[in-house]
Design a protein around this nucleic acid. Structure first.
Length: 692
DNA sequence: GCGGATCAC
DNA sequence: TATGGTGATCCGC
């Protein structure tokens, strides 16, 4: 290991303990890993990896991330107080608009099978019971049972490192058919509760149990217990469940009392806010290792609540959609409707092999892949016009090379011939992986932008099956999606990498006691009455949001609980409007943000130089000036609103009018959360372990 | 349209 | 000895 520079010793922990700065995906707290000596695991992983090509590549990637963080820090530091306060105003306004979309009328259940592959293997071979076991091989583990997790062994970990951590570890090869069989059994059960359930993988599904709860007069928690019992009866496998008002929260909840447990988050706004406020951001689907680091290192954000507190920074430094996503997370919002059908957009295959620079060998690999891909495409009747070649060099650097054709292709020969041209341009090269992907399919439905596209534009956030918002951002670019055509593959490889170096960052969800007085206060608050007690949460962001709501409209205590019901104001123009906007990367929040909610006052640069609001002329090259000008109009408008204009009718709506049920919400809410207001704190965080 | 990144499972 | 495969999306070019 190279000597760590002395000056960095205080800033980072290199030097004495180099493994602490090696950020991997599996040195993290997770269900079944409570008693693990994380320091030791991290050290072993580091020692086993050190010096390898893989490790060197990880170090390169790490350096890039550091740069990214530094750049963002610099931008953050450069913000003037004036800018900040303006963006804070924008953020507050956005929070209000997002709050208005809150829908507490649905009951979502997320089911997650416990260590699925491993559990199935144990079911089929009882001699494995009670012994540490992993499904996978020496190079990669798909999942590990709980006995193995106690040693720090987990999904996505190379087998040879796992064996080092746990020499007794039993390896069982993956048997895809077996898992599919048992998955089908579980799905038969899911179907009886929600015929339209959404399977996001072999072992996970989302169910809308709103109707079941209503018709049978039972709580979401009761349905969850019943369903888990039924799954066990049908398969002999245990699962965990989460019940909440939206998919995003339900998913978080299903992880809390895993394995073989469940957690219900009442459909109550204060309950949601309290729950989300102390939640580590890494628990949220869509926030991965890198995003977490950026948010914590640059903004000091580690819990969802801080997303709202730092709203001004987020809105000024991230794209509008990313900032919206972050603010939504802070509010505990998520998708409440079943996602619309989504068509597959690409098909691909890739293979890893012993690194080689033999051209004959490389072309042979390419040929095999072309054959495979063509066969897969024929099975699905797909023809595409964009071909992408993926390469991973022997030093783990990944490259892609793409080619878009006039014609649609699907035959083995076409794929191979075009792919060969792409590969040829890269020679000579030493590779350990080749992949092929075809996209831009015929019949892409692109001909009818009317419905899907428009809806996407109208809603300021779009969510996929898991309730993860589709969003985008320059340096983050993170997003997630569970396609409806799920790839039933590497299932259990749930990544979680919360670095637990800072001891104060305990996970409140995984412990039974709470030593932090402020947190306890919050929790007690949660356990107590859920209405009319806002004032007792000291410094809570709930207060702040409520204050915002009150300020925006004194009558809105009702509004914030019901759904926006006003009919849309002329939104269909948005497409053209957006395209006329002066979009300057990170600043587009201000401009776009306003146009999507306010049609009548956008700042448009007509003919690309004249402000539509005041007529002032500014050529497009005057980027900064334009920004300031836009800010000026924004501030002007916000002031107007402050002084009493009704902003409520201007609130943007995201949901389609179809499922607006309007008045019934409160009743549904009560019904689905009988424990409202009477949830003792110990119950709130107690593991509900029931052996079916 | 391309290439690099990030994320989920 | 040895660190996966499939699909999606976003951003800056």
């Amino acid at each position: 290991m190279p000597m760590a520079d002395k000056k960095s010793e205080s800033a980072s922990s290199d030097g004495a303990r180099p493994w602490q700065s090696y950020h991997t995906v599996f040195t993290n707290a997770k269900a079944g890993m409570e008693g693990v000596d994380k320091e030791k695991v991290q050290r072993v992983v580091y020692e086993m990896s050190k010096g390898s090509k893989y490790f060197e590549n990880e170090e390169r990637k790490e350096a890039f991330i550091r740069q990214k963080i530094e750049r963002m820090r610099a931008r953050s530091a450069k913000l003037t107080a004036g800018h900040l306060s303006q963006y804070q105003t924008v953020a507050d306004k956005r929070i209000l608009e997002l709050e208005a979309t809150r829908d507490l009328s649905k009951v979502w259940l997320h089911v997650d099978m416990d260590a699925f592959y491993a559990a199935v293997e144990t079911l089929c071979d009882s001699s494995l019971k009670g012994r540490p076991m992993a499904v996978g091989g020496m190079s990669m583990i798909s999942t590990a049972n709980y006995e193995a997790r106690r040693f720090g062994v987990r999904a996505a970990m190379p087998g040879f490192i796992a064996r080092k951590l746990c020499p007794e570890l039993i390896f069982v090869p993956v048997d895809f058919e077996k898992y599919t069989y048992y998955s089908d059994l579980t799905r038969k059960v899911f179907q009886t509760y929600d015929p339209n359930f959404i399977a996001s993988s072999l072992d996970e599904a989302y169910l809308d149990i709103t109707e079941v709860c209503k018709e049978r007069g039972v709580s979401g928690g009761e349905v969850a217990e019943e369903l888990r019992n039924a799954v066990f009866g049908e398969t002999g496998l245990t699962c965990s469940a989460g019940v909440a008002a939206n998919c995003l929260l339900a998913k978080v909840c299903s992880d809390i009392n895993k394995p073989n447990g469940q957690f219900v988050l009442p459909n109550d706004r204060l309950a949601v806010m309290t729950f989300i406020s102390s939640l580590p951001i890494r628990k949220i689907g869509g926030i991965g290792k890198v995003t977490e680091r950026i948010l914590t290192d640059v903004f000091g954000i580690s819990t969802c609540e801080e997303m709202l507190r730092k709203g001004g920074y987020l809105c000024s430094l991230f794209s509008r959609s990313t900032a919206d996503f972050f603010l939504s997370v802070g509010l505990g919002l998520g998708e409440t409707d079943p996602p619309q059908m989504r068509l597959r957009k690409s098909i691909s295959n890739e293979r890893t092999f012993p690194a080689t620079d033999s051209e004959a060998l490389l072309y042979q690999k390419l040929d095999e892949l072309a054959e495979l891909l063509s066969s897969d495409m024929q099975k699905e009747g797909l023809h595409g016009r964009t071909l992408t070649l993926k390469l991973k060099t022997s030093s783990f650097e990944v490259r892609t090379r793409a080619l878009t054709l006039q014609k649609y292709i699907s035959s083995r020969d076409d794929i191979y011939n075009y792919a060969s041209k792409l590969l040829k341009a890269e020679l000579p090269i030493s590779l350990r992986l080749i992949g092929l992907r075809v996209s831009q399919f015929k019949d892409d439905k692109m001909g009818s932008p009317s419905d899907p596209t428009q809806k996407t534009l109208l809603s300021f956030m779009v969510a996929d099956a898991s309730g993860n918002f589709v969003r985008g951002q320059s340096s983050l670019g993170s997003e997630t999606s569970n396609n409806l055509f799920m790839n039933d593959f590497g299932d259990d490889i749930s990544v979680e990498t919360r670095e637990m170096i800072d001891s104060e960052r305990d996970d409140p969800l995984n412990r039974n006691d709470s030593s932090d007085p402020e947190q306890r206060c919050t929790l007690i608050e949660f356990a107590g009455k859920t209405e009319g007690m806002h004032g007792h949460i000291n410094g809570s962001i709930v207060e702040k949001v409520d204050a915002l709501i009150e300020k925006s409209d004194p009558k809105s205590s009702q509004l914030k609980k019901s759904n926006g019901r006003e009919s849309d104001t002329s939104l269909p123009h948005e497409t053209e409007i957006s395209s006329c906007l002066n979009q300057k990367d990170n600043n587009d929040y201000l401009l776009q943000g306003e146009t999507s909610s306010r049609q009548e006052e956008q700042i448009l640069w007509m003919n690309d130089y004249e402000c539509s609001l005041c007529g002032i002329e500014l050529p497009s090259s005057f980027v900064e000036e334009r920004q300031e000008h836009a800010d000026f109009h924004l501030a002007e408008r916000l002031q107007k609103e402050e002084s009493g204009m009704d902003s409520r009718t201007l609130i943007a709506r995201e949901r389609s009018p179809l499922k607006q049920t309007g008045s019934g919400n409160k009743h549904k809410k009560r019904k689905s959360s009988p424990s409202d207001g009477h949830l003792p704190i110990d119950v709130f965080f107690r593991k509900i372990n029931q052996k079916p």
